[in-house]
């Protein structure tokens, strides 16, 4: 896959002034990005995942030529975002906020026509393209064409935002939390369109807080925290990177709660004890490699004269991964 976006050691500092007294103010420097490097290839959805203030939107803005980096280099299909901003702008589709970004007194179609004209799309092509996108995002069914933008629901606004991002059929999409606050049907629609676009060869950089979404939409995830990429890989690779234990959950019939210490001695790992809805004792063993202790657990519980009703192994979720790296 060809490289769509290449970021090398990108640094961005915001300078703010904090007032001290009536007249005096002190300069405060906030490092939003501290040497961020990553790549996005055509045909993949790369998720940029991180807590609030991690630098996700700053990274997206720099790639979209809306913010100048203080240091480092960013290339979009080989074009420098600082020196060749106009070439970059021709190649990206952008969605920054689903809540606003259009003119309220214009209809969805008029808004798209306005931005299409600003993007330099010929009128005949533009009309056809708008029809296609209205259909693709099911905006036509919602009557978005003739309704004023100020009357749109949040879901419709998000769809229209994605339609604008796709208007010039760009090879690269930058989507900043495109499903934030949406109802499930709209969120699902947007996710499915994004996946389909990536299958058709587009490069998508997708920021989100939603772990579930990141897991199902993104081929690769970049975890960003305090302005640095702290981990990178597919959801599965990321899970395997954290030292977090897997959890072996054993549902035991006839277990005496006083035997927890005994089990710990037999297995070598102290379990936590709980009771499930059916009344089974629920022993949870936090282990690094479940396959190495599974036998001991089964034998240990059998020695206590108890019966195992069922057993399952819980893998860490992407949320665990996120929390692990965010806390470092």
């Amino acid at each position: 896959m060809a490289k769509a976006i290449v970021a090398k050691n990108v640094v961005k500092r915001y300078i703010t002034r904090v007032r001290k007294g009536l007249v005096r103010s002190v300069k405060k420097i906030i490092e939003a990005l501290r040497g961020v490097s990553f790549e996005v290839r055509h045909g993949e959805v790369v998720g940029l995942l991180g807590p609030n203030g991690a630098g996700k939107t700053t990274a997206v803005k720099i790639i979209a030529t809306l913010l100048l980096p203080d240091d480092g280099e960013v290339y979009v299909e080989g074009f420098d975002v600082v020196r060749e901003a106009n070439e970059v702008r021709k190649r990206i589709g952008l969605l920054l906020s689903v809540e606003k970004g259009f003119y309220g007194k214009l209809t969805g179609r008029e808004n798209l026509e306005y931005f299409g004209a600003l993007y330099g799309i010929p009128r005949s092509v533009l009309r056809r393209r708008i029809d296609e996108l209205m259909k693709l995002l099911e905006l036509d069914k919602l009557g978005a064409s003739s309704r004023l933008y100020e009357e749109y629901s949040l879901g419709m606004k998000a769809r229209l935002g994605l339609a604008r991002a796709l208007l010039k059929d760009p090879p690269i999409l930058l989507l900043d939390e495109p499903t934030l606050g949406l109802d499930p049907p709209s969120a699902r629609k947007i996710r499915s369109v994004v996946k389909e676009l990536a299958r058709n060869g587009k490069a998508v950089l997708y920021t989100t807080h939603n772990m579930f979404e990141a897991e199902i939409v993104c081929d690769r995830i970049l975890l960003i925290n305090r302005g640095k990429i702290v981990a990178e890989g597919s959801p599965e690779e990321l899970k395997s990177k954290i030292p977090q234990m897997r959890t072996v959950v054993v549902y035991v019939r006839g277990f005496n709660p006083n035997d927890v210490e005994r089990v710990a001695e037999l297995v070598g790992v102290k379990p936590s004890l709980g009771i499930d809805e059916e009344g089974f004792a629920m022993l949870k063993f936090q282990v690094r490699k479940p396959e190495e202790v599974l036998n001991d657990i089964v034998k240990g519980i059998a020695k206590l004269g108890c019966e195992i009703a069922r057993l399952r192994i819980e893998e860490p979720t992407l949320e665990d991964v996120f929390l692990y790296f965010a806390s470092r």
Binding site: A64, T65, R89, I92, L96, K100, G101, F102, Y119, G120
Partner: peptide, 13 residues
Amino acid sequence: FMGTLPYVIASPV
């Protein structure tokens, strides 16, 4: 105010 400025600036105009 409308939130359209980023899209205007990001256009190759």
